[in-house]
């Protein structure tokens, strides 16, 4: 497969200027990258915060979607959002059933950034506690109910 070659290319391209508010945290190898994102407008929910996204790539990337979650590290919290569980799992159709291989790391970061920018609700998805207790980490195995398309 071409996962490694394609990620190498993405990395080369990414070293050209990234869109504002998106930066590389670390890219140790071609299975796992960490990216930092910031919300740039004055949305009070996310003001002055930087969030860290964890990308996991399989050998079948980009035919298969990467696994993308927020992770908690020093100075990096999980953003509050009705589609983001408190363990960092993100409910975004783009990362599941609606993935397309023409998407890339940069475009995924931009989608998540705009998902935060447009949010006004200071809340977690319904059933967050139960979901986090159930221990699901892999977003791809979950059948999300996209019941709220207005967010």
């Amino acid at each position: 497969m071409f996962a490694t070659k394609r990620l190498q290319k993405e990395l080369n391209n990414i070293h050209k200027p990234l869109p504002p508010g998106i930066s590389i945290a670390s890219t140790p190898d071609f299975t796992n990258w960490k990216m930092d994102i910031q919300v740039l407008d004055n949305n009070p929910l996310y003001a002055d915060q930087i969030y860290r996204l964890n990308f996991k790539f399989s050998q079948s990337y980009p035919i298969e979607a990467p696994e993308v979650t927020f992770i908690k590290e020093e100075g990096r919290d999980i953003p509050m959002h009705p589609h983001i569980y408190s363990n960092g799992v993100i409910c975004l159709d783009l990362l599941g059933s609606n993935w397309s291989p023409v998407q890339n790391v940069e475009s995924v970061c931009m989608s998540i950034q705009s998902m935060l920018t447009s949010n006004t609700k200071n809340e977690r998805p319904p059933g967050d506690d139960a979901f986090v207790r159930s221990g699901y980490r892999s977003p791809r195995n979950i059948n999300f109910v996209y019941d709220d398309n207005t967010v």
Partner: peptide
């Protein structure tokens, strides 16, 4: 760019 595949980037 016009000779590149936008999935594999080759």
């Amino acid at each position: 760019d016009y000779l590149m595949d936008s999935i594999s980037f080759s």
